[in-house]
Design a protein around this nucleic acid. Structure first.
Lengths: 186, 186
DNA sequence: TTTGTTTTGGGACGATCGTTCAGGTAGTTT
DNA sequence: AAACTACCTGAACGATCGTCCCAAAACAAA
């Protein structure tokens, strides 16, 4: 049994994480198209060969970035739903505010998430990671609410995507009636 | 006044259209990442320099492709809504069938459309073209239905995107209850 | 026919790409 | 100390990229 961690591996994994973070920043700024070994290495402040050492190929790097990103999304949306629930009938307001934030200050991140999402559509090995946060959320609701919840998630996705091609991000006030209608029970 | 068209320009515009069609096929097969002057030229069966002659840059080519694609989408969804309306309460069935088709046989085309959509999120000059089909559709409905219609379109987008990362495309039967709930009036 | 315009296409330039390799460094084990 | 392992990195290879140049061909106007 070994309690002490290998200092070399520790440094390696730290740098690996830094490279993934740099990759996500690149995608936020320039899209998946801007991801090359060299741009990522420059963003992370490491030599080019460092990215090829820790990730056997560019695909590997993108896969690792999507997995890391999907984990963040899952926890994020988890708390969003939790907060919306705790506010009861004011849940729509909470959701609308978070959507406005995703389309405003965090616009780059939102674009990055959907680009990685579409990447998963083309690369089957990415799909489990891209689907995980959806599954986590679906498991939160009662079985008899499942259809309503799927509609809710689809509506959120649609509003985000459509909001990304607006010339200026929609405000929470503009989004609230739509979210309200989306959440209204039948 | 000149009635006879210039034979040279006629040939040029025909080739230009062929290049755009080839570009769309490339995007369906390999994504926007697969679009280069050389791959497009090979797909269209023309020399490489032909694509640089008719389109001053790769961006120009992608812009033209998105515009052409958006026009098709608008008319397509227009008829979808028209058919769904004419079927009254069976509209959900019609919509579910078309969604299943978009995620099955026409999956590549659907991916291409959303990739171009995300491209528009990054390139402001593409947004009017990407938004046009949304505007056309919104103008179809009565003003008091606008919120419900926006929810409907957002839901469609979300279902399509989520359907793209399924391992196997969802069937119309699986989609129908969700579409039905989405269309149910409050 | 002559002149001018538009399209065509072969070839090439410099830049950048993913990836490899071999040598060097730091940390662990024996 | 020696042997071993894991990480680091500068240099370089071949491939492919966007784009430019220029001459030939096709067509229109004179």
């Amino acid at each position: 049994m070994k309690l002490q961690v290998d200092g070399r591996k520790a440094r390696g994994e730290k740098r690996r994480a830094e490279i993934i973070e740099a990759t996500l920043r690149i995608i936020e700024r320039d899209g998946v198209a801007g991801v090359t070994h060299r741009t990522v290495a420059a963003e992370a402040g490491v030599p080019t060969t460092s990215t090829t050492y820790h990730f056997t190929s560019l695909d590997d790097l993108l896969i690792a970035t999507l997995i890391s990103c999907a984990r963040d999304m899952a926890t994020e949306v988890y708390w969003m739903i939790d907060r919306a629930r705790s506010r009861g009938s004011r849940g729509a307001e909470e959701v609308a505010g978070l959507l406005a934030e995703a389309l405003g200050p965090r616009r780059g991140r939102t674009m990055a998430e959907y680009e990685l999402y579409l990447l998963a559509a083309r690369k089957p090995e990415l799909r489990p990671a891209a689907r995980r946060w959806l599954d986590v959320l679906t498991s939160m609701v009662r079985h008899d609410d499942e259809v309503a919840f799927r509609v809710f998630l689809a509506g959120i996705d649609g509003l985000l995507i459509q909001g990304l091609i607006d010339d200026e991000p929609p405000s929470a006030d503009e989004l609230r009636p739509v979210v309200d209608y989306l959440l209204k029970p039948r």
